[in-house]
Computed example of a mutant assay.
Amino acid sequence: DAVILALGGGSWSRLGSDGAWAPMLAEKGVDVAPLRPANCGFHADWSAHFQERYAGEPLKSVAACIRETASADIGANAPLRRGEIMLTRDGLEGGLAYALSSDLRQALDQTGEAVLAIDLLPDRDAAWVAGQVMHPRGAKSLSSHLRSRLNLHGAKAGLLRECLGRDDYADPARLAAAIKRLPVRLTGMRPMDEAISTAGGVRPRALDERLMLLALPGVFCAGEMLDWDAPTGGYLLTACFAGGRAAAKGALAWLN
């Protein structure tokens, strides 16, 4: 009389959530968007030295936003998200990357690359950073100068060297600007089976207000089957639980 489908997305195939339902529903006339990775890691072309030295290192207390290209101009007031990023051998992942994954995926689809602008010192304004970078350093090396004046060292300093050309690194003004908006070029997404969740699924227009499929009266859908880009963590779980309750209420209303 009524069926509720809560079959998950496609990112946990080892536990059965493999998205095999998608073509089955599509064959029955249900409008289904292709499943894509969400809340996942991204590829970057790190040098061998950077991979060996910094893979597995976290970038703590940073902020980031999306920029169109590595050369695009981003103002100091561009909106930023704060969080942490984990550097990996193939690129990066972590809460901040997950939060921006939808926009990064869209940029990759449109241009084949995405550029993440990272503020390495979000608690300091650009003027302060520029002043510290340009402070006379005497006989100190530039890396020692950045460590002593800005407390910039470890993975943050390594990423700065990795992503900034030699000429820009040697230019104090350009170096200071990069500390506040370091362009990190991303070339792709990690495989869907490594993602925390997936985008895509049953499109909203394929459902009525009770979460019943218009093409299959009496069949309801809930959870990650629906086409929505959920933030990770408790938000994703809470929304899936709430969607399950809504689908159950819809099924009861249908039966009555």
Rank of each mutant, 00 (worst) to 15 (best):
A2D: 07
A2V: 13
G8P: 02
G9R: 07
S11Q: 00
S13Y: 02
R14H: 14
G16N: 06
S17E: 09
A20R: 11
A20D: 02
W21T: 10
P23I: 09
M24E: 13
A26N: 04
E27T: 04
G29N: 02
G29Q: 01
V30D: 02
D31M: 09
D31W: 00
R36E: 13
P37E: 04
A38H: 13
N39S: 12
C40F: 01
C40Y: 01
C40K: 09
G41D: 08
F42D: 05
F42I: 09
H43M: 10
W46K: 15
W46N: 10
S47M: 11
A48H: 15
H49E: 15
Q51T: 11
R53V: 08
A55R: 11
E57L: 05
P58R: 05
K60C: 00
S61N: 11
V62M: 10
V62D: 10
A64N: 04
I66C: 14
I66V: 15
R67T: 11
E68F: 04
E68K: 15
A70M: 03
S71C: 03
A72Y: 03
D73I: 15
I74T: 11
P79Y: 06
R81I: 07
R81A: 11
E84V: 14
I85T: 05
M86F: 05
M86V: 13
L87A: 11
T88I: 03
R89W: 03
G91L: 01
L92A: 12
E93I: 04
G95M: 03
Y98C: 13
L100S: 15
S102F: 02
A107E: 13
A107T: 01
L108R: 01
L108D: 12
D109H: 11
Q110P: 04
T111C: 04
E113Q: 14
E113F: 06
L116Q: 02
A117Q: 03
I118L: 03
D119Y: 01
L120R: 01
L120F: 00
P122F: 09
R124I: 00
A126R: 10
A127F: 05
W128V: 07
G131S: 15
V133G: 01
V133E: 00
M134H: 10
H135P: 00
R137P: 06
R137I: 09
R137T: 07
G138E: 09
A139G: 14
S143C: 03
L146G: 01
R149W: 07
L152A: 06
H153N: 14
A155D: 04
G158K: 00
G158T: 06
L159S: 06
L159R: 09
C163N: 00
Y169D: 05
A173V: 14
I179M: 02
K180W: 08
L182W: 02
R185G: 05
T187P: 06
G188I: 02
G188A: 12
R190A: 08
R190H: 14
D193N: 14
E194K: 02
I196V: 12
T198I: 04
A199N: 12
R203E: 08
R205M: 14
E209Q: 11
R210T: 09
L211Q: 15
L213D: 03
A215Y: 09
L216R: 08
V219L: 07
V219Q: 04
F220T: 04
F220I: 07
C221S: 05
C221I: 10
A222S: 15
D227A: 09
W228L: 10
T232H: 00
T238S: 12
T238I: 06
A239M: 12
A239H: 11
F241V: 08
A242Y: 10
G243R: 09
A246S: 14
G250R: 07
L252Q: 08
N256I: 09
